[in-house]
């Protein structure tokens, strides 16, 4: 068969195909720019002309009604805001100054190498996330987190000094989480840590506390922290005596944990070293 014959067979087909495409387009425009806006506008008390103009973007779509106003005063639970300059500072600290502050101020309680002088009283610092340390120091200073011992310690530190010392402790003994996992004594605890509990709305601890999980930036590392400190903090979140966690993250979680679960979780993370 020759070219001409093919073209002849194709002609009506091409016409029909074009008609269908145009038809679908027209139907789309009709429903999107006329039917939907007019009927929905009618229900919202908007006249058809305005509704069509709004759907075309000629008239602003918002606000359709007066926007609710809020007269609430701001009462932030923490003043820390993760802006780009702060993150840059934590990634590029003044290491020498961090080392110096750590040795002269913090070592007495948190240890020369970031390992606590007394596990019953002071938490470990080595390998902790720099973001977590910075946030806590800032919160002690602003009063968002209350503690008689730590608040005077940080009172004179500038934001830059806090970032430097935070990065210094973070750099000690990194990558502890590469080590093998010790299994929890009870399967329930293992479940809370690894998979969470949907019925209670309890996300897995690891969905935030695993440094590679992509959770909130300020999430502290729990591995090898002292078990006394871990349990104390969960209890403090539960009772509300510590409330500097953004968006109630740890308060809502701790409220759902029983005392025995808290002890077992503290034991569990303490053992991962």
């Amino acid at each position: 068969m020759s070219e001409d014959v093919f073209r002849e067979i194709d002609r009506p087909w091409r016409l029909w195909a074009s008609a269908i495409v145009v038809g679908v387009l027209a139907f789309g425009c009709l429903s999107g720019f006329v039917i939907l806006p007019v009927i929905q506008g009618y229900q919202a008390g908007i006249d058809p002309y305005t509704a069509i103009c709004r759907s075309l973007g000629i008239l602003p779509g918002s606000p359709a009604a007066r926007q609710p106003v809020s007269t609430a005063p701001a009462a932030p639970v923490s003043q820390v805001s993760w802006g780009p300059s702060l993150i840059a500072r934590l990634n590029k600290p003044d290491a020498a100054r961090g080392q110096e502050i750590a040795a002269s101020v913090c070592a007495a309680c948190h240890g020369e190498k970031g390992l606590t002088a007394d596990p019953a009283q002071f938490p470990n610092m080595a390998g902790q996330s720099a973001f977590a340390i910075y946030k806590q120091l800032h919160d002690y200073k602003s009063g968002a987190r209350a503690n008689e011992i730590m608040q005077p310690v940080v009172a004179d530190l500038t934001d830059e000094q806090m970032a430097d010392v935070a990065a210094h402790f973070a750099a000690l003994q990194q990558a502890r989480w590469e080590q093998t996992w010790v299994r929890a004594a009870s399967p329930q605890v293992e479940t809370i840590v690894r998979t969470g509990d949907s019925a209670r709305g309890l996300p897995a601890c690891e969905s935030c506390h695993n440094p590679r999980s992509g959770g909130p930036i300020e999430t502290p590392v729990l591995f090898a922290q002292t078990k006394e400190y871990l349990a104390l903090q969960m209890q403090a979140f539960k009772s509300g005596s510590r409330k500097n966690d953004l968006y109630r993250r740890m308060r809502s979680i701790s409220e759902k944990l029983t005392d025995s679960e808290i002890d077992q979780l503290a034991q569990y993370y303490f053992e991962q070293r």
């Binding site: 939907l36 929905q40 229900q43 709004r54 779509g61 918002s62 606000p63 359709a64 926007q67 809020s70 609430a72 005063p73 701001a74 009462a75 932030p76 639970v77 923490s78 003043q79 805001s81 993760w82 802006g83 953004l246 968006y247 109630r248």
Partner: peptide, 25 residues
């Protein structure tokens, strides 16, 4: 009555907790 949102309003995500409207209380 499902339709796309018509309200365009921005807020700095790093400062949500500092904003008066979305303060915890």
């Amino acid at each position: 009555f499902i339709n796309p949102p018509s309200n365009l309003e921005t807020i700095d995500p790093t400062k949500v907790h500092l904003s008066p409207e979305f303060t915890e209380a």
